[in-house]
Simulated scan of single mutants.
Amino acid sequence: MTPGPAATHTAPQGPRRLTGLPAPAAPRAMPTDTSVRILQAALRRELELRLRVPPAHRLGTDRPLRRQCVHPLLALQFKRTPKHGLEVEVPADLLSEGTLTEVATVVAAGLGASPAMRGGGP
Rank of each mutant, 00 (worst) to 15 (best):
L65N: 05
H71R: 15
L49R: 15
E89F: 05
R58E: 14
R63Y: 06
E46T: 10
A41V: 05
P82Q: 07
K83C: 00
E97W: 03
A108D: 12
A92P: 11
L74M: 15
P122G: 14
A23T: 09
G110N: 07
A23W: 05
E87G: 02
L111Q: 13
S35D: 08
M1Y: 03
C69H: 13
T81L: 04
R44A: 15
L21P: 02
V106D: 07
S114T: 14
E97P: 00
G98W: 06
P31M: 09
Q13N: 02
E87A: 13
G4I: 03
T34L: 13
A104Q: 03
T61L: 03
R28S: 08
E97C: 02
L95P: 09
P12M: 12
P91N: 12
P122V: 07
A6H: 08
A116S: 10
A108S: 15
R52L: 11
G98E: 05
T2E: 10
M1L: 11
L65V: 13
A75P: 07
R52V: 12
A25Q: 14
T99E: 00
D33C: 00
Q13P: 07
A108C: 12
A56G: 10
H57Y: 04
L95S: 06
G85D: 15
S96I: 14
C69L: 13
E102R: 10
T99A: 04
A29T: 12
A108R: 15
P82C: 04
T101W: 01
V106T: 15
H71C: 01
P3Y: 03
A25V: 15
L43V: 07
V53R: 14
T32N: 00
A26D: 08
E102F: 01
D33V: 00
G14V: 09
D62P: 00
V88L: 01
L21K: 08
L65K: 13
E87M: 08
G14T: 13
V88E: 03
G110T: 09
R52I: 06
P31L: 09
E87F: 01
L21E: 10
K83I: 00
T105S: 11
Q40F: 01
P64M: 03
E48G: 07
M1N: 07
M117V: 10
V106N: 01
H84M: 13
A7T: 09
L74V: 14
V36N: 02
H84V: 11
A7G: 06
I38H: 02
L86T: 12
P54G: 10
V107I: 02
A6N: 06
H84D: 15
A56N: 06
A25I: 03
R28G: 05
G4S: 01
S96W: 14
P22M: 08
L86W: 09
L74K: 04
V107R: 02
R17K: 04
